[in-house]
Nucleic acid binder design. Structure first.
Lengths: 135, 135
DNA sequence: CTTGATCCCGTAGTGGCTACGGGAGGCAAA
DNA sequence: TTTGCCTCCCGTAGCCACTACGGGATCAAG
């Protein structure tokens, strides 16, 4: 006997995947999550397939992929069609973007740190933070 | 004779400060930029004070301050009232946030880099990027 | 006076959710 | 069975910081 896929209510799925209930509904409206079957009363009923898909999405989001990138990755992942190169392209593109942001933030950090550090907290006439912005 | 503040049209101000025209109008509607005088025909007329203020805002934004933080900094900067400590608080808070993002992105970068690097581009059955998301 | 660039304004759209609110479903204890 | 309470339903609006669109008015140069 195969283990039956257990049925989950929306809130349970949310908890299982670490996502807000409203977020699931949102993913459904934009077509990222499939519309699940319902109880006679209209409540959504999910199973393990949904849990895995939602977890996939959440991990993608945590790695900074946009929802559209996640959408593309989901298609490539199911049923692992297309080429690995396509996946690599998306990830590499994203990596480039991450590195760009990293460089920006690093520069930012040193500027802010320097100006905050040289802030003597007393007269506002020559505040290094404001001076930086003033010119 | 003092040098007269030269009058600028909206587009010229935009160019001078490196900001979009629409962005200036947006800043005006949210009260970040003052409503300037107008020509009889209704076109906005700016001067050097506006240029400096807009440049201040733009630099603040480049350093990642939110518009509300910029708004607070503008008040403290003009006419340099309040304490330097207030400015420092805003900047230090922002610096903390920048460092948090920096840490996140650094972690992200190594995960993505590793999984992209180990991508052999051939069979999709075991794609390291997808595997990472799949579980 | 005509031409062509600029500027006007209001509105709607972007991404990725989150919040709100009133009503209905579901389930367990009494 | 009734009561109570939690969960879920749906649609809509809001968040941030702009950006885009479009049709009409104005401006400066020739």
């Amino acid at each position: 006997m195969l283990t039956k896929a257990r049925a989950l209510a929306a809130g349970q799925l949310a908890k299982a995947a670490g996502v807000n209930l409203e977020t699931i509904r949102y993913y459904e409206t934009i077509g990222l999550m499939p519309a699940p079957p319902r109880t006679p009363g209209g409540h959504r009923v999910y199973d393990d397939v949904h849990v895995r898909r939602l977890a996939f999405i959440r991990r993608g989001r945590e790695l900074g992929f946009s929802l559209e990138e996640v959408r593309a990755l989901l298609i490539l992942n199911d049923p692992r069609q297309g080429s690995c190169a396509e996946v690599k392209d998306i990830a590499a593109m994203h990596l480039t973007e991450v590195r760009r942001k990293l460089a920006d933030l690093t520069r930012l950090e040193s500027i802010l740190a320097a100006s905050v550090a040289s802030c003597t907290s007393e007269p506002l006439a020559s505040c290094p933070v404001l001076d930086m912005l003033e010119l």
